[in-house]
């Protein structure tokens, strides 16, 4: 292919999404918004993994699909994290009637 996509483009996309997710984590107060930002970061890592799988070296002992399998595990973990996160947020919401992270301040940091 003459004009294939360079690997660095995928990596830059992942880096940008990761940074956006990080900004979201640091600036948002709402716990669900933070959860969404975390999902963006996990997806950024997945893009990296799949790009490296496609463009990287083929090592016989690494297995044919190491990056893909890790990405599948990340998807699983993300689904579990969202379920757990929503459960915990609901629990806290019933206590405080608010879903803002900084409202839960009975514990001194």
């Amino acid at each position: 292919m003459e004009s294939d996509i360079p690997l660095s483009w995928f990596l830059l996309f992942a880096a940008a999404s990761f940074a956006i997710g990080l900004i979201g984590v640091l600036t948002r107060k709402n716990a669900i918004a933070v959860l969404m930002a975390i999902e963006i970061m996990l997806n950024a890592a997945n893009v990296n993994l799949v790009a490296f799988w496609r463009y990287g070296p083929e090592l016989p002992e690494a297995g044919p699909v190491a990056g893909i399998v890790l990405a599948i595990m990340v998807i699983t973990v993300a689904a579990a994290e969202v379920a757990v996160g929503i459960g915990l947020i609901l629990l806290c919401y019933r206590r405080w009637r608010a879903a803002d992270v900084d409202r839960y301040d009975s514990l001194a940091g």
Partner: peptide, 25 residues
């Protein structure tokens, strides 16, 4: 949960670079 999930996202991004650098897990 929130601190831990953010940290595992950072960890995972680091792992993805490690995988990219070496090609193996």
């Amino acid at each position: 949960f929130i601190y831990g999930s953010v940290s595992s996202a950072l960890f995972l991004f680091g792992l993805s670079y490690l995988y990219g650098l070496t090609g193996s897990t």
